[in-house]
Nucleic acid binder design. Structure first.
Lengths: 342, 342
DNA sequence: CTGTTAGCGCGTTCAA
DNA sequence: TTGAACGCGCTAACAG
């Protein structure tokens, strides 16, 4: 086992096998134009030397790195962790690796990270969950590789994307509450400046009220930051209002579960006194009691489909639909009176 | 804005700026040996051409890629997602990027992924949460870059690692239950074939019983797979036993929360009838009612410290402690009678 | 302070 | 079926 220190190269293998480096390259890349006997010689030399192909050199020569970049808001959030798993599974299936960067949804970081990823010559870029501005477009356009958006969309329709219809989903959730007979329906959602997630959900909520002839009441709306703590305070505040809602659409599961607890802490029951419906369907939703009724978003699929779409672009395969909208559905569990089979 | 198609190179910039490529290289790499005036010229040429340095070429020439590989069991699990966030934050701080691969703790995948990562010439490797076998060692030894383990240890002490003392943590958790006055204490843990997580926790549990003169009862032990569903069945099974335990150490938070619910579903209360203590302290633990008392494991820190350690090795900095054992602590919440300040 | 010149390890013609 | 030679884009001596 005479492994050389400092990297065995294709030349060493060629020498050891008594062939040229071109031949070694051929067997490594599975070229059919190699006599079985020589192939065998080379393979043995590779094994003897413990040769490990240098992907960087290969990348420089071939202009393909078989790695894609992923810019993500926060890998530690249940939503994006699951989405990332979808991405990685498909990437792995197509023999790509992924470089992951957390942006915390800060525009400057998003831009800088995208730039870095492009410098690393990724074969494609996946941009997740954040708004695409002209500054983003400038970078993406300068990329010589495809860019696909996931869990967000390009308002200008310039980049392909995979997402769900947020407004419709929020509409559906709110309407479900209305169908349950509620007329005072509260809303807890993220900062309305977030045009990708919060605002569309807010719009969906309002649209549902309007359709059913219910008036929109500003005092029934609270803004949170998607985290548990903020859900508690938002709900407490709603409960303390002059005329509290009998149902609340909470545009984020963590906040929704918090809302349930806030209601319970106030000595009331869910869904007895207040119905709660969430958004996302992260594992937490079904790991609490009462289990949370929520909008089920296909997180894994969004990632998987986005990655699959990216592979098509990278291989110049034709793609039929550039803006994929995956279906969502309502998952009725125990925090609303409407149950699964009703 | 005359951006050339097909990559602007350092040569183009040199020509545009009227200097040699070496000079361009110098300003890109922030070498101090460049006259301010020249630097300015180059910088402008770079901007005009929209030049983006090719990190692959740089990697080949410099033999450093500023990226590290991460082999992780499952990024979608709350535990590893948080740990990964710690890794990425520190990596980012030191200007490294991370390539993440899910192994699902399958040895073959672990080996194959490590190999791929090494081929990609990562500057270092982080191996997480799984057992290190001789086959792993063979690959790691063949790597010309440092390898650091996180949330696992090398039984042979060959590789540096960052983890907690699992056995001690389990001992502490079990002892807390004993101190509460329980004498029939159950255990729900992972498959004992897992020598990194499950077995040490099992040992700690037994050690605590022994220390306090309690006999170990096989019939009070159940095996799960760390997921919610398995926690439900394990607890149901325990409750159905001839003489059920009055307290259970559940070696995983998701299963622990499930255990709470199983107790409640049986019409009993936690901690009134049964005390439950978990392990890990993932967000879920404090997002359910009653809130779960558990062993708090510094997940983020394990990742952060491991990455920091890796940077030291990559830069040949001296390191004092090769086997870092981070402190754990008991977080008493509501699923045990012992509370925070008692 | 700046330019010249070798490679880095491999893919890929083009001939043989 | 195989080999020789060039080039991918950049870093790193070494001169000057």
């Amino acid at each position: 086992m005479e492994k050389k220190r400092g990297a065995v190269t294709i030349y060493d293998v060629a020498e050891e096998a008594g062939v040229s480096m071109a031949t070694v390259s051929r067997v490594i890349n599975g070229s059919p134009n190699v006599k079985p006997a020589t192939r065998k010689k080379v393979l043995e030399a590779i094994r003897r030397l413990g040769y490990r192909p240098n992907a960087v050199a290969r990348g420089l020569a071939s202009k393909r790195t078989t790695t894609v970049g992923v810019v993500i808001p926060d890998i530690s959030s249940a939503f994006f962790a699951e989405l990332t798993r979808g991405i990685e599974d498909i990437a792995n299936m197509y023999h790509y690796n992924i470089i992951i960067c957390n942006s915390d949804q800060q525009k400057q970081k998003e831009l800088q990270l995208s730039e870095t990823l492009l410098e690393k010559q990724v074969d494609g870029l996946l941009f997740l969950g954040s708004e695409v501005t002209d500054e983003h477009r400038e970078i993406f356009d300068g990329a010589l590789v495809p860019v696909v958006l996931a869990a967000t969309v390009d308002r200008k329709g310039k980049y392909p994307s995979v997402s769900i219809d947020q407004k419709q989903a929020a509409f559906d959730a709110t309407e479900a509450l209305i169908r349950e007979g509620h007329r005072e329906i509260g809303l807890i959602c993220g900062p309305l400046t977030d045009t990708i997630n919060a605002y569309p959900r807010y719009e969906g909520y309002r649209a549902a009220l309007e359709k059913h002839g219910l008036s929109f009441r500003e005092d029934l709306v609270r803004i949170g930051d998607y985290r548990y703590r903020s859900g508690i305070s938002a709900m407490e505040s709603l409960l303390a209002a002059p005329s509290p809602p009998t149902a609340v659409f909470v545009a984020g599961d963590e906040m929704a579960v918090a809302a349930i607890h806030a209601v319970q802490d106030a000595g009331k029951s869910v869904p007895g006194d207040v119905s709660i419906i969430g958004f996302d369907d992260i594992p937490l939703a079904s790991q609490v009691r009462p289990q949370l009724s929520t909008v089920s978003v296909p997180m894994y699929d969004i990632g998987a489909v986005a990655m699959r779409l990216l592979t098509k672009y990278m291989n110049d395969e034709p793609v039929e639909n550039h803006e994929v909208v995956l279906p969502h559905r309502l998952e009725f569990r125990e925090s609303t009176r409407t149950r699964g089979e009703d």
